[in-house]
Amino acid sequence: MTAVDAVPADAAPAGGTGGAGEPRPPADRRQAYRRRRWVRVLVVTALTVLALVFVYPLIWLVSASFKPRAEIFDNRLVPQHPTLENYLTVWDSAPLALWLGNTLVVTALAATTVTVSSALVAWGFAHYRFRGRGPLFGVVLATMMLPGAVTLIPTYLIWHRLGFVGTNVPLWAGNLFASAFYVFLLRQFFLSLPREPFEAARLDGASEWTLFWRIAVPLCRPALVITFLFEAQASWTDLMRPLVYLQDTATFTVPRGLKAVIDQFGPGGESQWEVVVTASVITTVPMILLFFAGQRYFVQGIATTGSKG
């Protein structure tokens, strides 16, 4: 799982195979070793350059947010005349604190509800044997491939009929009913649990709920954290649903607010790029913090996603 696993793949021919095969001529081996070291240097150099290319836009953005308007496009790494002016301006021209608060509420609700509901459903599919389970799970997998645009309008009409358009409810309440992707992910983890502890607890008279809540959930904590973090990111960064459901500026999430800022200060508007840049930084930074808080989980979760593809 970690980087360490990658090492034997390269190191194997040097020592690993020595036990069974015949000893190689030392000169040959030294040459092979030197070549491998060369390759390693080349690979690390290439990766360093590429990593810089990947991270640089973020650094550029943060740096630009500390530049006066005239110097935004000077593409210098370090601002010539560093200033906090933009942060004061953006705070005055857009209700960012309010938007951040709104987003935090929506994100917390969306991530919590989807984690709990998806865990319940995943446990049902992983632990219990009943007729129709296979086909039903097939339906779960099929809905993962369903393009969101297809259900967009009828879903809007449901929330419209219930009177929730204009509130944050449509941004998270659907998560009460589990999400196919997380059901799939969590089921993978639940399947890896041994059955014995559950059978033993059952003989001791534990209820099915106790088995789930007291045994399965604690054992699969990392998977639940992964689900929570994934959904927190998806919810925080979403633009489509806030565009559809939120009309009043006071209810906006930050991405929706940032879109409004682009419209007002961006290319079609007043061309005050420093405001757009600074609002972008404020929208992005919480996600970077989230990543570093849960880096291990993000990487593990993504790797699991593809492993059964």
Binding site: L50, A51, F54, V55, P57, L58, L61, Q233, W236, T237, L239, V254, P255, L258, K259, I262, S280, T283, T284, M287, I288, L290, F291, Q295, F298, V299
Partner: peptide, 13 residues
Amino acid sequence: TAFFVPKMTPPVA
């Protein structure tokens, strides 16, 4: 990590 971090950027940004 370096390749993954940009993925966190909201698409609007």
